[in-house]
Design a protein around this nucleic acid. Sequence first.
DNA 1: CTGAAAGCGCTAACAT
DNA 2: ATGTTAGCGCTTTCAG
Lengths: 351, 351
Amino acid sequence: MATMKSAGAGRPGRQPTIIDVAREAHVGVMTVSRVINNYDTVKPVTRAKVMSAIARVGYRPNDAARMLKGMRARMIGFIVPDLSDFFSSCFHAAQKVAMQHDYQTMVVATGRSAAVENRQLDSLGNHRISGLLIVTSGGDGQRLKHLQESGIPVVALDRPVAGLDADAVLVENREGAEQGVRHLIEHGHKSIACVGFDGDVFTVRERIEGYKQAMRAAGLEPQVFADIQSLERMEELVGRWSNTKKKPSAIFAAQRISSIRLIQALHRVGLRVPQDIAVVGFDDFELADVLGTPLTVVSQSPTSLAQSAAELLFKQIEQAQQESGTEHHPAKIIFPTRLILRASCGCSPKA
Amino acid sequence: MATMKSAGAGRPGRQPTIIDVAREAHVGVMTVSRVINNYDTVKPVTRAKVMSAIARVGYRPNDAARMLKGMRARMIGFIVPDLSDFFSSCFHAAQKVAMQHDYQTMVVATGRSAAVENRQLDSLGNHRISGLLIVTSGGDGQRLKHLQESGIPVVALDRPVAGLDADAVLVENREGAEQGVRHLIEHGHKSIACVGFDGDVFTVRERIEGYKQAMRAAGLEPQVFADIQSLERMEELVGRWSNTKKKPSAIFAAQRISSIRLIQALHRVGLRVPQDIAVVGFDDFELADVLGTPLTVVSQSPTSLAQSAAELLFKQIEQAQQESGTEHHPAKIIFPTRLILRASCGCSPKA
DNA sequence: CTGAAAGCGCTAACAT
DNA sequence: ATGTTAGCGCTTTCAG
């Protein structure tokens, strides 16, 4: 093997520090610091000397030391309920933006627990992150407010945080749901039920609202089942329908997991889609088009969503570094949805 | 609103420090430090006084300052190619273990790029993490070796890292694939092809090896298509089969994404499973049982895998804190797979 | 068992 | 344009 990289003239075995670099470059430590931080008051020749010295001794700035002086780490927090398909797409998009800015990303999945979210938020406070992207699990807005007040930009993703005045990047849940349900109504359905996995979640609440709006506008009676949290409960619900006469002729599934559970349950109970029952789901997924019956969905774009959010965040981070006085006026960005027609709604499958 | 939490007797507006706590508790700073770090040389009464003072002033230790003194952050790194279904399950399991130890998790998705992996590995070096869990994207073993040598425990997950002697938690890829292929052979198939998304990846290579072994053991000719990286290429491949007479009668898909692409392609080209062509895939997924034809798979358990890996990691972290001299003897844990029979292999769907 | 002093590596605030 | 000094909050000596 080749010789180990020399640790410079300093103590052997230890990471080189700016002092080692300063010695090597025959300049003061402050000059080195200025080079590292891209101050423009360094003569190009000096800068070059320092740069070369940095490379020669293999110096890497010590984040801990900078943070001690009040600087924040080049790291953003990313808090989500879980890393299911949708949120992991969000993560990839956000991380991509972070990497472009040379930031790392610290991920926390709360497991959909507000308590865990709160606990982790407290932990995050100690890590001197530069900013936070959060899909809330219903945690405490106060904690976030404190973070904000202590100078950490926060952007809400997918859902607003109650009691927090922050940038938010959301989806047209209500309108999207309305459009999906309206499509079922246009197919002639009169009895349309709505199933959801967790009616407490903002996005689901909104979609259910959209569903109700569409139903009422058509003079139809909403039938909401907002908390079907397992395949078993879904089977129970669907089974009840298949046995009685008052089976709805169509169903709107308010989130991805509901669509999946619904399809699984329908499959097990032996109801055919769309002949026995038509289905439209909210949120698209990879396999939606190779299911027994390809699923019609209201689709959203997790990557654009998260990319916007991350860009908003870094805009704030950069501003915060310059002028700390100005009041930030929270931005709200709302992304539209798109109805993707496949077979489950009753449309004939087309090429 | 209630009164803001007082910042103690120190400078108002700033986070309280151990000095504030010491003053409040009428003890020296060192005593406070000892309490925080659970030294057992503190009289219970003193400890109580300090604890109460800590609570009163709302003190939270400053990680940056501790790290300056050479301690590592209560944070582990988690590097993966992406956060697809499989790896996000891994993440959840690993984070759960980390949280139990009161550690945070820093996630990096490399996008399957060895270059990104290397770059991020360098970044990680500055963050003084306590340990690293890595599913390599083919990055440089040397960098990891340096991390290890600088005292950061590393555990390889799902794939070993070339040129690195570290704990590893793997899956019986070869045996699992063999079993899956053997099952197809038992169904009477003679012409069985194997498709993969990326033949360079360790796990896929191993599974292909298992496939070949099973084929050769039965005196059959292996037909490997190891780099079908898109739906288009898969459709092309499948289309070619449907037009000629030398169509294989069964296919073994070496990874999840291959199974999915294969099924999509088969669906588009109009080949029925298992009548026209039987399929067995490696790695189970949520919707495998509600596809047009429920998919038979060789399943692995991402959560047990990642949990073991995380536990191994924390075992090392704890050891490293105590005795730094002892040589670590790398552990290898290999998890078995399980063949889940559904309909795509030709078995009749059963209740 | 407890305390006082000396830095860890860096940067803000002053020199020069 | 560059150098010097004084800490940031904590823990590691070393003394009580």
